[in-house]
């Protein structure tokens, strides 16, 4: 059923947009004939659809892994500041080292995501009670704000790079092409495999750290492995289309409702759910603001923030 939904999203994303197209034109565009304007539009929508689905899947899995590792229902690569860290590194690369080219962006994004994740977790888990949702959220928010302040400081004096960086920052999948997508594939594949391999450890962790160790799981190794997977996924996704928030928060919760809490099911389901969410957010953004386009990051924030609030309300807060 989930796969059907995915196929449906992909189809809609190809067919619906600023310009209405006929079925024949969709087919022509898919098979590489760009004779009419409609077919050309479909051809442009193709890499964009692939990008939205890939990035959504990556963010969905990353969110599920982060929620599993931190045992925190509010964990999300956007809220925990990981995407902002990736964005900061990419912008530093653009501004100081004149870096261009999607492959370098990938490395920078992953490095930034890693630094931010370690930093936020270190700050959020100090003191008693470990990494509570509130502490992690605050540490992530502070890190995001600091990172975006530095991004502004870097971009503002540089008119040459400003426009591109700003559009990329809000989270756009509009400028996609297959050339920029290719370098991301190894990163995304590696991240996905690492996360899936760690699914059993995440399952054990859900019982508590001591019990997990008692069940014979190598907790530390599993944590590091799955964290590395999540960092690869959100670093690459951010480098591709800018920091997109809330996908990683909403999707795992929804997936848990349908598929239960077993991470071996949850992770693939989150991947599909993330792809569906980001794909449909992109379509929605194209449709509601015709003839303009609403950036996908704005749409996901609108869907995701109420969900975040709802989760925060439902959860019995520890502390205070």
């Amino acid at each position: 059923m989930a796969l059907t939904l995915l196929a449906l999203t992909a189809g809609v994303s190809l067919a619906v947009g600023t310009r209405p197209v006929a079925w024949a034109e969709i087919w022509a565009g898919l098979t590489g004939h760009v004779d009419s304007i409609g077919a050309a539009a479909v051809a442009v929508r193709m890499p964009r659809t692939v990008l939205a689905l890939l990035a959504g899947a990556a963010l969905g899995v990353a969110g599920a892994v982060m929620q599993g590792i931190t045992r925190n229902p509010l964990a999300d690569p956007g809220i925990l500041g990981v995407n902002a860290g990736a964005a900061l590194f990419v912008v530093v690369g653009i501004a100081w080292f004149d870096i261009s080219g999607a492959a370098t962006f990938m490395w920078l994004g992953v490095a930034g995501a890693g630094c931010a994740a370690i930093f936020v977790y270190a700050i959020g888990s100090t003191g008693q009670g470990g990494a509570t949702p509130l502490k992690l959220t605050l540490a992530g928010t502070a890190t995001s704000i600091a990172a975006s302040a530095f991004v502004v400081a870097l971009v503002l004096p540089r008119n040459d790079i400003a426009g591109g960086v700003q559009a990329w920052q809000v989270g756009g999948v509009g400028g996609a092409s297959f050339d920029t997508l290719l370098p991301a594939l190894p990163f995304l594949t590696a991240g996905l495999l690492l996360s899936l391999a760690a699914a059993r450890v995440l399952n054990a962790l859900a019982l508590g750290e001591d019990l997990a160790a008692g069940l014979g799981q190598n907790v530390a190794a599993g944590r590091i492995m799955s964290a590395a997977g999540a960092i690869l996924l959100c670093g690459a996704a951010t480098a591709l289309c800018g920091p997109i928030g809330f996908v990683g928060l909403v999707v795992p919760h929804a997936a848990r409702m349908f598929g239960g809490i077993d991470h071996r099911v949850l992770l693939p389901l989150s991947a599909i759910g993330g792809a569906v969410l980001l794909g449909s957010a992109d379509v929605l953004g194209r449709v509601i603001a015709r003839p303009n386009e609403l950036d996908v990051g704005v749409v996901t924030a609108f869907v995701g923030a109420p969900f975040f609030i709802w989760t925060a309300r439902r959860q019995r807060m520890r502390g205070l």
Binding site: L294, V298, A312
Partner: peptide, 20 residues
């Protein structure tokens, strides 16, 4: 804690409105 978490969610939404 709830007030602060709710507020963080609300600000995220409003900031994306401003950006847009």
């Amino acid at each position: 804690a709830r007030l602060i978490l709710v507020g963080i969610g609300v600000s995220a939404m409003l900031n994306s409105v401003t950006s847009y």
